[in-house]
């Protein structure tokens, strides 16, 4: 659906030139929710703004739905942009227009007729749950409501792609979740491809199918969220995940509290339906090993259940070895920490 090839963006010229992105490649499939995560300054905002050419790439090609945007003239680009919706961190609504008129904006650009606009806007108001606020101005709405208007406006032109530029970063956690649920809902309902950038792992974990980690103007890691989240390869990725799931200090204290010949700390990762099975206690009972749970998370990645437990086994070394082998055989991922 979206192909980014050799994308380079340099700001300024000569001595003052700053490279935001260098030779970046990315491929986003139709109908998926693709997340790009990175720290501020990593280039993620430039990346998403290059997709609809709000930012013109210095080099490289941008393909959306088989059309090379970077080759189009102004008029053709305006035409293509109507198929790409976008929502923003600061909503960017017209402050002088009502909720209704904001949502109608893209329709009026293309000269839709009044009854068509009315029908469409009312549909969208219902979709985002703002029917009662139709005549209000943005200044009278909460942040979450403003973003709902943003979503409705972005959907008005029936786009194939929705770009979300830090769409939840200005919202509190509850509102973030409600907007994420809305995005997931429209993704399923309209089979809409969604590209979102964020600095919050929580956002990726909640709704994304695939994720790319951006750092220093390039992608350092990319893959299925379950894969990247549970087995991060790059240091930056680990940072994001650790801050989301683990509490480093207390964990180290827990591991160091009791160490010795007859104990071993391991990280066990569960994925899918196995997360809810009693595999661990069954295996431990069979091998006669005791275990203490030092830290753990049981949650979901989008709708896939997963668990990650840091466990200390206590017992004869051989029995612990057998336990680990058995758990691995049962399809769990076991990593020895100490």
């Amino acid at each position: 659906m979206i192909e980014i090839r050799g994308l380079t963006k340099v700001y300024g010229k000569g001595d003052k030139a700053a490279t935001a992105l260098s030779g970046l490649n990315l491929s986003i499939k139709k109908g998926e929710i693709f997340g790009v995560i990175g720290h501020s300054g990593a280039g993620k905002s430039t990346l998403i703004r290059c997709i609809n050419l709000l930012e013109r790439p210095t080099e490289g090609e941008i393909w959306v739905d088989g059309v090379e945007l970077t080759k189009l003239n102004r008029g053709q680009l305006q035409e293509q942009r109507r198929k790409i919706g976008m929502i923003f961190q600061h909503f960017n609504l017209l402050s002088s227009a009502t909720v209704y008129d904001n949502i109608a904006f893209p329709l009026r650009l293309t000269g839709s007729t009044r009854p068509d606009i009315d029908l469409k806007v009312k549909d969208l108001l219902a979709l985002v749950g703002l029917e009662e606020h139709s005549d209000k101005y943005p200044a009278q709405l909460s942040g979450g409501q403003k973003q709902r208007v943003g979503v409705a406006r972005a959907l008005a032109s029936d786009p194939d792609v929705l770009l979300c530029d830090e769409a939840t970063s200005a919202l509190d956690p509850q509102t973030t979740d409600s907007i994420l649920r809305l995005l997931l809902d429209i993704n399923k309902r309209f089979h809409l491809t969604i590209v979102l950038i964020t600095h919050e792992m929580h956002v990726i974990q909640s709704i994304c199918d695939r994720v790319a980690v951006i750092h220093g103007g390039g992608i350092v890691e990319e893959g299925e969220v379950t894969e990247v989240f549970l087995k991060p390869q790059h240091e930056i990725t680990r940072d994001f995940i650790r801050s989301e799931t683990q509490n480093e200090g207390p964990l180290r204290a827990a591991i160091e509290a009791k160490q010795g010949e007859y104990s071993k700390a391991v990280k066990i990762t569960f994925l899918g339906q196995k997360t809810y099975d009693s595999t661990l206690s069954q295996v431990a009972r069979e091998t006669g090993v005791n275990f203490a749970i030092l830290q753990g998370t049981i949650s979901t990645l989008k709708d896939v259940p997963y668990g990650q437990l840091i466990v200390r086994f206590e017992g004869p070394a051989a029995a612990i070895e057998i336990t680990i082998a058995e758990l691995t055989a049962q399809g769990l991922d076991v990593e020895v920490i100490s």
């Binding site: 609809n52 709000l54 680009l77 305006q78 035409e79 293509q80 942009r81 109507r82 790409i84 919706g85 976008m86 923003f88 600061h90 960017n92 609504l93 017209l94 402050s95 002088s96 227009a97 904006f105 893209p106 009026r108 650009l109 293309t110 406006r153 032109s157 770009l163």
Partner: peptide, 25 residues
């Protein structure tokens, strides 16, 4: 600026941006 960019992102032409964004805002 963000509002203007949003309009550009929706495929608004310069004259549409003037009449529908800049002047009302």
């Amino acid at each position: 600026r963000g509002v203007i960019e949003a309009a550009q992102g929706m495929g608004a032409s310069t004259s549409q941006i003037v009449t529908r964004v800049l002047l009302p805002e």
